[in-house]
Design a protein around this nucleic acid. Structure first.
Lengths: 202, 202
DNA sequence: CCGGGAACTCCTCACTTGTGGAATTCCTGG
DNA sequence: CCAGGAATTCCACAAGTGAGGAGTTCCCGG
């Protein structure tokens, strides 16, 4: 039997040659897992398996499960900035363009994973809610014309959120199946009206 | 020592005298747990403990954890009917009345628990998503004028959902702190416009 | 060229979870 | 008044969890 397991065998332990991108693979897998199973439901073993890696490596790189989550969300949270930046542009067809850009963000599977991870965890973990609100508000508040965070922008954001939720999460047929152009036509006036609230104040 | 543990002692096993309302206590505790921890995160032992009951009683009454969830949601899902009924009433100030009624539903802690349980679980458990969509659509589809489920009603629902989410879950300051009347004034035109879509088709 | 540290794997521990069986006490219908 | 069932408890199990220790292989700076 000693002659049997010659060289490679089980590839046992030890460092691999070359660069491996393991860290990034773990973060991506973690985001997927947190998005689809929530914080508690996502298991480190499943994440490691998805990343093609030993579970102990997660501990090696990130320590805690909570730290893993924080890192994964922070890593992918550039999309939060892009989500709120969507409402920055002004102009004649600002509503149409905002909705179009916003829906585009939700249609990217990677972004969807981040969003679902944040919202899903925010629903079940108070401290995650804190950080989510913090990140969202830091952006929203920064671009208010009047200094405070503007009701118009917030209402526009609420419509966009509800729309994306209905279309991509709950998947209500009439909204999920509607052609993009038609959706834009129907919802753009709403966004335009909300955004105009901040421009003609008292 | 025999004289010591006279009567009550550890209250060991056996049926309790009188009615107990245990079933209802379990359902209520389950709803709380699912709302705050999600489907996976809620443990049967924690639910039983919250209800002041032995974990095995859950199995006795409901069998599966999934069945428990289904029962708990179905039990509290009168609110789903009320949520979609909100969009039934027509008239001059239909938008205002719909928003007012809808927000009222979210402000009841019991209802909020059901909603959070459904949404939180829908985000993290595909099979729960199926049943959630089914329940919602059975109601929404039933009152469509054209026979199919109407885009106008669905869009109105998406705005209401996003609004409630921003106000009660994420708690964006400018939306959460806004007086009810002001909110109604700002959002009612949107709802009115969406609902009018179904009335003047081609 | 060699030694320290980084990358990586295996194994184990203590704990929690969902599920289920068996026993006990009480209520109620005949 | 008594038998059957309902309500309730304790105990046990197998599986999965997060955490951590110990060892192995490789890379790179001196």
């Amino acid at each position: 039997m000693a002659g049997d397991r010659v060289a490679r065998a089980v590839r046992s332990a030890g460092r691999r040659p070359g660069v491996s991108g393991t860290r990034e693979a773990i973060l991506a897998a973690a985001l997927r897992a947190f998005a689809t199973s929530g914080f508690r439901g996502a298991s480190l073993r499943a994440i490691a398996n998805d990343a093609g890696v030993d579970p102990a490596l997660i501990r090696h790189y990130f320590g805690d499960k909570a730290s893993l989550f924080a890192q994964a969300v922070a890593d992918g949270s550039g999309i939060v900035a892009r989500m709120s930046a969507v409402l920055d542009q002004r102009g004649p067809d600002q509503g149409r363009r905002a909705i179009d850009a916003y829906l585009g963000l939700w249609e990217d599977p990677d972004n969807l994973a981040v969003i679902r991870a944040m919202i899903g965890t925010a629903m079940t973990a108070p401290e995650a809610l804190e950080s989510l609100r913090g990140v969202l508000l830091a952006r929203v508040a920064s671009r208010a014309p009047g200094g405070a965070d503007s009701p118009g922008v917030a209402l526009a954001a609420s419509q966009l959120l509800g729309l994306a939720f209905a279309r991509y999460v709950i998947q209500i047929p009439s909204v999920a199946a509607m052609p993009r152009d038609e959706l834009l036509d129907l919802v753009a006036p709403t966004i335009d009206r909300y955004l105009a609230l901040g421009e003609a104040p008292a």
